[in-house]
């Protein structure tokens, strides 16, 4: 059954149809919340609350991208949570990393090579930690836009719909976020494998 039909049934109170929609989108929703918040428990709470809120207000949904609608709900809930607690993450994202190959979007996140050496795995872990650390140093808006556009592979118009902002704002925020990440990763260049090492050091 396609998403439109499930949505129609869910809007008429079919909980099974709604839960099938949840299963289709929960990985993206939780991944966005986890990387926005850097806290697995808070991310789970925010994700659950977002789906509960979606169920309550499903009749208000007037078409468009359901994925964008869900991501907007999650993003706004993350902003609220970040405003509520201005503290450092209590649980590292390392603990949440999975060795599974794909998310529910069907897009591969570079599955681990079966022939990968322990050194390669270590290097991969270093890259991930470096990127996640640099992501945390971005502003909330820059982090959201880079997670939606680069990690979740949304196009600009969809990101604009999620963030409820103009397309031009998405472009400029994304460019600034990528540039900041580039500078942050360049500072860690020696730690990264050659393939990810950025040339040159940023001037102070």
């Amino acid at each position: 059954m396609d998403e439109a039909a499930l949505l129609r049934d869910a809007q008429q109170g079919d909980l099974d149809a709604f839960n099938r929609l949840v299963l289709a989108h929960q990985s993206r929703a939780y991944a966005l919340a986890a990387r926005m918040l850097g806290d697995s428990e808070a991310a789970a709470d925010v994700t659950q609350e977002s789906f509960l809120s979606l169920y309550r207000h499903l009749r208000d949904f007037r078409g468009g991208s359901l994925r964008a609608y869900i991501m907007r709900s999650v993003t706004n809930a993350c902003y609220d949570e970040l405003r509520r607690r201005k503290r450092r993450p209590s649980v590292s994202l390392d603990a949440m990393a999975s060795s599974d190959g794909e998310d529910d979007s069907g897009r591969a996140f570079e599955p681990a090579d079966p022939g990968e050496t322990p050194e390669d795995q270590l290097a991969r872990g270093e890259i991930r930690r470096a990127i996640e650390d640099c992501l945390r140093r971005l502003t909330d808006e820059q982090r959201a836009v880079v997670l939606l556009a680069d990690v979740q592979a949304m196009d600009y118009s969809e990101v604009a719909a999620v963030m409820q902002t103009a397309l031009g704002t998405v472009k400029s925020r994304l460019a600034r976020a990528r540039a900041n990440l580039r500078d942050c990763l360049a500072l860690r260049g020696e730690l990264l494998p050659e393939a990810f090492r950025l040339e040159g050091e940023p001037s102070a």
């Binding site: 909980l15 709604f18 839960n19 949840v22 299963l23 929960q26 990985s27 929703a29 939780y30 991944a31 986890a34 990387r35 697995s40 789970a44 994700t47 659950q48 789906f51 509960l52 169920y55 994202l93 949440m96 990393a97 999975s98 060795s99 599974d100 190959g101 794909e102 998310d103 996140f109 570079e110 681990a112 991969r124 890259i127 991930r128 990127i131 996640e132 880079v146 680069d150 990690v151 592979a153 990528r178 990440l181 580039r182 990763l185 990810f196 950025l198």
Partner: peptide, 20 residues
């Protein structure tokens, strides 16, 4: 390269299902 590194991030394991 930055974009490639972001896209290469491994997925995050779900702690549980969020069905209602």
């Amino acid at each position: 390269r930055v974009r490639g590194a972001l896209r290469a991030l491994p997925p995050i394991r779900l702690p549980r299902n969020f069905t209602l």
